[in-house]
Computed example of a mutant assay.
Amino acid sequence: MLYKELKDSIKALGFPSIEDFVHYIGVTPSDILEWEEKDDVPYIVSLIIHLLKGDKDLPNNKTLDNLVEECLPLAQLLEEASSFPHKLEEMFLLQKELNDSTNGKNWELGINKYGKEINWLRCIHMEVAELIDSTPWKHWKNINAESDMNNIHVELVDIWHFLMSYILQETNVPKAVSLVNTHCIYEALEEIDPKAMVKEAEKLSYISLAIETGNMPTFSGVERFIDQFFRCCKISGLSFTWLQKLYIGKNCLNKFRQDHGYKEGTYIKVWNNDEDNVVMVSILDKMENVSFDELYSKLEESYPA
């Protein structure tokens, strides 16, 4: 609103003078002088004028419009975040169910049903290595290659499987959801720096080794793991929503593998020249809402005879 428009509006509202209006809204005469000098009235004053007039439409303001536009992504993220505890609970329950099925009851004690030791920390360490191998980190080979971001996201989901298992080994589902929930609210980066991504991923290995060697207490290690994992997701451009979708997909694929001879060595991992991970992601891309049972059926349809 321009200063002249303010003066005209004040008269129309019945204020004897601009001083009376100033007193009414609680600003100082020096503020009025500044408005007159700049020929610009603050938006909040324009809003008061409109409210006093009884106008239904609010005054236009470019600054406010820009502010609202900037806040929209955050508002959408916060709206999505309201569903995060439910999604986390679903993932932890699915992970427990998969571990019960694959490793047998009481796998939390560190031994599977075949008497073999379970080492989630080593699993995480090895998956980090696979993630790093999806980037052109080697100084002697393919130095100009692009990072395989699709596979990096799949490797992060694999790490998430093992990290959830480790968390469940140390606590229970409600506590696990409580520990993780506040870390899920973040905006994934659009521009990815492969070097930074590798460095952040390596920190997951450092935490694994620190706990394994007794140089970090287990519970503080769990908290460090969670924080660092979601930092890796953010830097890698993997949103929590897509992480959850990929997790359901990979969990379903893991169940599918077990049902089709993975442990016995009879499972076929390459389907018509594509690895099963690639097939699973391509199916997920076409699914708006992920259903474990529907995805399992689609995998059955795609699996080589």
Score class of each variant (00 low, 15 high):
residue 31 D to Y: 13
residue 99 N to I: 00
residue 102 T to D: 05
residue 85 P to I: 00
residue 51 L to Q: 05
residue 41 V to Y: 04
residue 72 L to M: 08
residue 60 N to D: 12
residue 86 H to T: 13
residue 52 L to M: 15
residue 86 H to Y: 11
residue 36 E to S: 01
residue 104 G to D: 04
residue 36 E to G: 05
residue 35 W to G: 06
residue 71 C to N: 13
residue 33 L to K: 08
residue 67 L to E: 15
residue 37 E to C: 07
residue 63 T to R: 10
residue 44 I to W: 14
residue 39 D to A: 00
residue 35 W to S: 01
residue 58 L to E: 08
residue 77 L to P: 03
residue 57 D to A: 15
residue 103 N to K: 13
residue 86 H to V: 06
residue 30 S to Y: 11
residue 71 C to P: 10
residue 37 E to I: 02
residue 43 Y to A: 00
residue 44 I to M: 09
residue 77 L to W: 13
residue 36 E to M: 06
residue 48 I to N: 12
residue 94 L to T: 03
residue 42 P to V: 03
residue 102 T to Q: 11
residue 70 E to W: 05
residue 88 L to K: 01
residue 96 K to H: 11
residue 41 V to C: 09
residue 48 I to E: 14
residue 71 C to S: 15
residue 88 L to H: 00
residue 32 I to E: 00
residue 35 W to L: 02
residue 62 K to N: 08
residue 53 K to M: 10
residue 73 P to K: 01
residue 72 L to Y: 05
residue 60 N to W: 09
residue 89 E to R: 06
residue 80 E to F: 07
residue 90 E to Q: 06
residue 97 E to P: 15
residue 90 E to C: 02
residue 65 D to I: 14
residue 94 L to N: 11
residue 62 K to F: 04
residue 103 N to L: 15
residue 55 D to R: 15
residue 53 K to H: 02
residue 51 L to A: 09
residue 103 N to T: 06
residue 72 L to G: 03
residue 104 G to P: 08
residue 102 T to C: 06
residue 96 K to N: 04
